[in-house]
């Protein structure tokens, strides 16, 4: 055994150089058990199923709400679209009744219906009176 190895062997032979406070080991079981009890008490009880599921259910409800709102908006848009189609159809049928270049030509080529004439006396009476245009129209209607 060389000199260097003797250093380690010598140190080993001297034994344990560390000490502990008086009675340290005597109370260790109690302290360990007390700490385990304290840590067990601090550990929150297992959460009930409801509290575990609550966040997931809230998320699902929010998703359903957003989906519902989106569906509602889309449905409404679709209805408006359908109304627009109806309106377009109505417009098309109305358009058929509208004046077209052909109908205008027909109108001018057709003999105009004989317009009822206002006789001179009626006209003088009107001018002499203070009849309104509405009164005149009524008189005119009566005359015809």
């Amino acid at each position: 055994m060389n000199e260097e190895k003797d250093i380690l062997e010598l140190a080993r032979q001297e034994g344990n150089a560390f000490r502990t406070p008086e009675g340290y080991f005597d109370s260790l079981e109690d302290r360990v058990m007390a700490r385990i009890a304290a840590e067990t008490a601090q550990t929150p009880a297992r959460r009930p199923v409801w509290s575990v599921l609550k966040p997931a259910l809230t998320l699902a409800a929010m998703f359903a709400l957003i989906f519902g709102m989106g569906y509602g908006v889309l449905s409404l848009t679709h209805t408006l679209g359908r109304d627009a189609n109806v309106a377009a159809t109505e417009y098309a049928s109305a358009e058929e009744e509208m004046i077209t270049p052909a109908s205008l030509i027909n109108y001018y080529q057709t003999e105009p219906a004989e317009e009822p004439e206002i006789d001179e006396e009626t006209l003088i009476n009107y001018l002499a009176s203070e009849l309104s245009f509405a009164d005149l129209a009524e008189i005119y209607a009566q005359a015809n």
Binding site: I7, L8, A11, A17
Partner: peptide, 13 residues
């Protein structure tokens, strides 16, 4: 205060 070793023990640790 909880170490009683001599120089050899100090050198070891």
């Amino acid at each position: 205060p909880w170490f009683d070793g001599d120089q050899l023990q100090l050198a070891l640790h």
